[in-house]
Design a protein around this nucleic acid. Sequence first.
DNA 1: TATTGTTATACTCTATAACTATA
DNA 2: TATAGTTATAGAGTATAACAATA
Lengths: 157, 157
Amino acid sequence: MADPDRFVPRVPGIRYGVLDELAGYAVRRAQIRMYELFAESLEQWGITPQRFSAMTIVSLNPGLKLTELARIMGIARSGVVALVDVLEGMGYMERQAVPGDARAFSLVLTPKGQTDLVEITRAVKNADGLATRGLNSEDVAVLRAMLLRISDAPSDA
Amino acid sequence: MADPDRFVPRVPGIRYGVLDELAGYAVRRAQIRMYELFAESLEQWGITPQRFSAMTIVSLNPGLKLTELARIMGIARSGVVALVDVLEGMGYMERQAVPGDARAFSLVLTPKGQTDLVEITRAVKNADGLATRGLNSEDVAVLRAMLLRISDAPSDA
DNA sequence: TATTGTTATACTCTATAACTATA
DNA sequence: TATAGTTATAGAGTATAACAATA
């Protein structure tokens, strides 16, 4: 096999110039490759990284409203509607009526969602391990800490 | 201002579970934030990160064919056609006939493209610096090296 | 036959804006 | 008035597949 079609981050003979000095381009290249590895592992489940994130967050924080999930995931409310529609269609998530507020819905995983999430999580961990196979666990911890710093970077000085 | 609408990577009171242990989720969160910072810096130019990458690569490797650029950037040929159409429409890039091959085109930047790329690169470096402000230059070098390892991760054992 | 660029089409992910029903 | 969810629409960005011209 040898992954004939996977992304090649550095093509021999090509000059990348400033791209090689940018943290942003390094993050982008890593993200492309990780998405490929995750997609391979999750293909059989019909689960994308985004769907996995939503399932995990709802599983651990049952009762979230759609607006809250949108804020947590950093996407628009309309995007969450589509995402929840898909997961509901898969039998993994449910909208439940909120007693005090007829406008809102509480999100919960179905029993099937909870059950399958265990195996899906195993597949995700496997993909993450493949991606970081070139790093030891201490390196990965350092990497995550540095990336979190970037995630928290403010716009202004 | 204080960035009222920017992505919040960790919402207080929310449990993230395994997401906090995954390198992949950390990369994704960092990528979202970096994209926001790049988009802010490049907004005035009508340039996206992808367009910047294409301009930089063509600038340093003039004469690339569309198929080659597609491979280098890791996207489909049809995507490169649309990308080159946009940059050509902006007056930044040109298709040039290839003497020996009537099917192909050589890509080059226009003089305007070369000139503006200097300032655009400055804006990109500024955005990258903002994103990595919480890290010193040694940290950033380590970060880039680790991310490159991930970019190169094979699928099989 | 194979390759290059192109077009057509579709799907995902994102956004904004307008709508409805409730609060 | 404001909020929660929804719908409509649009724009990137990606993909596959088919095509014409050329190799």
